[in-house]
C-alpha cells in the first residue's frame, strides 16, 4: 500500500500543519524565500506521493489561472522593461510579481493535496471537534458532511431521469429551465429530508450531532511535526518578510 500522510500523522496535526504552512506562505513577500518554501511540499510529495491525477488536476487548474492572470498583470507592473512582446512591456518586476504568486499558490495547493487529500470528510469533522471548535458549528458541520453523499445520489438519479427524457446541458432556454427545476427539486427534497431528520433527532432526544468516535490518537510524530514545521516556518518568515 502506498504510504500516505494519514498513516503517520493524526488528522488534527495534519490540519494544524496545513494552516501553519499556508499562513506562513501567505506572509512571504520574497520570491527566493517562496522558492525555498516549495521545498517543504516537494519533500512531502517525495515521502508520500499522491496519485498523478490527484495532484495534476488542482495544479493544472491553478496554473492555467495564473497564466491568464500573468498575461493581464505583468504589463501593468511598473519597472525595468526586459523585452517588448509587441506593444506590451514585460518588466522584471512584473515577472517577479507573478513568480511570487505562482510559487506561493502552487506550494499551498501541493501541500494540501498531500496532507489533506486523503482525508475522509467524517475524519475532518472529528478532527475539528477534537480541536475544540464551537459545538454549534461542529453539529452543523457533521450533519452537512453526512448528507452530501445522500443528496449527490438523489441529484444523480434525477439528472439521469432527465437525460432519459432528452435533457442536455446547453445554453438554451429549455435547458436552463430544466436546470432550474433540477435545482428546485434537489432543494425541495433536501428540505423534506431535513424535516424527517429533525423528527429522528427528536426521537433520540436532541438536535445536533456529537462526535463520539475516538480514532484520533496524538502521537510523538505529531508533536515532532508541529515543532519541526513551526521552526521551518519561522525561519522562512524571518528571511522572507519585508
Amino acid at each position: 500500500m502506498k504510504p500516505c500522510m494519514m498513516t503517520f500523522f493524526d488528522a488534527r496535526s495534519r490540519m494544524l500543519a496545513t494552516f501553519m504552512f499556508s499562513g506562513a506562505v501567505a506572509l512571504i513577500q520574497d520570491v527566493r524565500i517562496a522558492a525555498l518554501a516549495c521545498a517543504l511540499p516537494l519533500l512531502s510529495i517525495a515521502c508520500a506521493p499522491p496519485s498523478f491525477a490527484r495532484i495534476a488536476r488542482p495544479l493544472l487548474h491553478i496554473n492555467v489561472l495564473f497564466l491568464l492572470t500573468a498575461l493581464m498583470t505583468i504589463p501593468f507592473v511598473p519597472g525595468e522593461t526586459l523585452w517588448m512582446a509587441g506593444p506590451i512591456p514585460v518588466t522584471r518586476e512584473g515577472l517577479l510579481f507573478m513568480a511570487l504568486i505562482t510559487l506561493k499558490g502552487n506550494a499551498v495547493v501541493a501541500w494540501c493535496v498531500v496532507w489533506l487529500g486523503s482525508m475522509e470528510p467524517a475524519t475532518l469533522g472529528h478532527a475539528l471537534s477534537r480541536l475544540r471548535l464551537p459545538t454549534p458549528f461542529i453539529r452543523l458541520l457533521m450533519s452537512t458532511i453526512r448528507y452530501i453523499d445522500v443528496l449527490q445520489e438523489e441529484y444523480a438519479c434525477m439528472r439521469m431521469a432527465m437525460r432519459a427524457r432528452g435533457f442536455k446541458p446547453q445554453l438554451t432556454r429549455l435547458s436552463l429551465r430544466a436546470h432550474g427545476l433540477l435545482v428546485g427539486a434537489l432543494l425541495l427534497r433536501s428540505l423534506e429530508r431535513a424535516d424527517r431528520v429533525a423528527d429522528a433527532m427528536k426521537c433520540r432526544g436532541h438536535h445536533g450531532v456529537y462526535a463520539a468516535t475516538e480514532t484520533l490518537v496524538w502521537r510523538a510524530a505529531d508533536t515532532a511535526l508541529m515543532i519541526g514545521l513551526g521552526a521551518a516556518c519561522a525561519l522562512l518568515l524571518l528571511g522572507g518578510m519585508p
Binding site: L140, Y155, V183, L186, L187
Partner: peptide
C-alpha cells in the same frame, strides 16, 4: 450560527449539503 436554533440544524445542514452538490452542475458556455 446564533440565528440557528437547534431545531434548525437539519434544515441548514441539508441545504448546505444541497448547495455543495449544486456546485457540481456545469453549464457549457
Amino acid at each position: 450560527a446564533r440565528r440557528t436554533r437547534p431545531e434548525d440544524v437539519p434544515r441548514v445542514a441539508l441545504l448546505g449539503a444541497a448547495f455543495f452538490v449544486t456546485t457540481f452542475m456545469r453549464i457549457p458556455i
